[in-house]
Design a binder for these strands. Structure first.
Lengths: 225, 225
DNA sequence: GTCATAAGTGACTAAATAGTCATTTATGGA
DNA sequence: TCCATAAATGACTATTTAGTCACTTATGAC
């Protein structure tokens, strides 16, 4: 039999006992190939857009046979979903780096948000571009919406979680907090994406300092009024 | 001869003399067909995205033969370019509606910006979605960049023009004003597009009031600091 | 080494889409 | 009414892309 790459079915005792199943050489080879595909796809997607990209572009960029792609993913949107999840994970990782110190002020949290998004924009630019496509794909009512929508929900939720303690209210107003999360996410993503087409990288960097202050001030106002 | 639909070459005396060339019935028919195509394409693009859309989708939606499309446009990206230009024209129209009264304060101008963008978001939602795709298309380094990029440049310039009088400086710092334009555009576009996926229409409407205040305050700060 | 199994391959077929053009329909002038 | 010209058409061909599968290569157990 020559079935597609199997997911290792974790047996219960694995979860309880063995620390790691010790990946065999075969497994490492498959993992390496899969990563090559993911890397190439991110490249292609950020350059051409998910819809305009083709499987051939991806496998050629990865220097692999076309059939190999289909052993690891079912189609373009499958691999795009994985990449979106990874990108959101990276962004969430940066957002969570500032440990939840109870001493932090709201201003500290907001400033941390801005810094984390800027770091993401700078160091994961391909992923930034991918997310901006992906977020848009949503309202283009299409198939596979869940796969692409879920990571964005996680993202908004993380922002909400970090902000809740500062809302200083008994009743948590869901609309209000969602509104804030959209404002934070929208402001940062929107600014950077316009900056990307309208400004030089150095000018963007120089903008962070003045941006930081008004970002923090305005959102504090938005949040507490 | 059966050439593609000709553009009327405006003769000089037309510009000087005749008020209107009085469009013939043939011309009106062609114009009507062209508009049908534009309408259908906007529909399809906002639903599927420019890259995923096909000519067949457009002509079927317009209830026209496929060949008709090619008498009016060379390909998908040609018609998309026209639509982007139209959308930006609508947005600029809204932005310019507040006449340049010298008495306006900076706060007035910023508030007007927000209102104009919200009106655009509400009443031209398809165009809003199209622009958000288009803006992204840019950095996806591809062909036909100019056609799509130019309208966005016009848009940023209009914002800059309206803001310059309030910078209250002898020397106009180009980076600083471009930065502000990106902040305005990014904030508004970003917020609405996140709101579109994360909020109900009524909640968005309810967010405008609180948003307005912090939007104006923060950008005033950003601008004058 | 040899055998069994999984990973990788790329030429192939099937399907979707772009783009063409001989023909039909509508318009406007004589 | 008749003719000349432009607009519209959709069946057609060409091209592009998705997806398959018989085969090759690598790995691991014995």
């Amino acid at each position: 039999m020559d079935l597609p790459v199997q997911k290792r079915i974790e047996s219960l005792d694995t979860l309880v006992q063995t620390p790691e199943p010790a990946p065999s050489r075969t497994e490492k080879r498959a993992a390496k190939t899969r990563n090559k595909l993911l890397k190439a796809a991110l490249d292609i997607f950020s350059e051409w857009g998910v819809d305009a990209a083709t499987i051939d572009m991806i496998t050629e960029r990865a220097d692999l046979g076309k059939g190999t792609f289909y052993r690891h993913f079912t189609d373009k949107y499958d691999i795009a979903g994985v990449l979106v999840e990874q990108a959101i994970d990276h962004l969430l990782g940066l957002l969570r780096q500032g440990e939840p110190q109870p001493s932090r002020s709201l201003e500290d949290v907001l400033e941390h948000f801005l810094n984390a998004h800027y770091a993401f924009f700078r160091h994961h630019q391909d992923e930034f571009i991918l997310l901006f496509q992906g977020r848009l794909l949503l309202k283009l009512e299409r198939q596979a919406t869940d796969r692409l929508e879920a990571p964005f929900a996680r993202y908004l939720e993380e922002i909400e979680i970090q902000l809740v303690p500062y809302l200083g209210q008994k009743k948590v107003d869901l609309v209000r907090i969602r509104r804030l999360a959209c404002a934070v996410a929208g402001f940062v993503f929107g600014f950077f994406s316009f900056a990307m087409i309208g400004m030089e990288p150095q000018d963007i960097a120089d903008s962070i300092k003045p941006l930081r202050q008004s970002f923090v001030k305005s959102l504090t106002l938005f949040l507490t009024q």
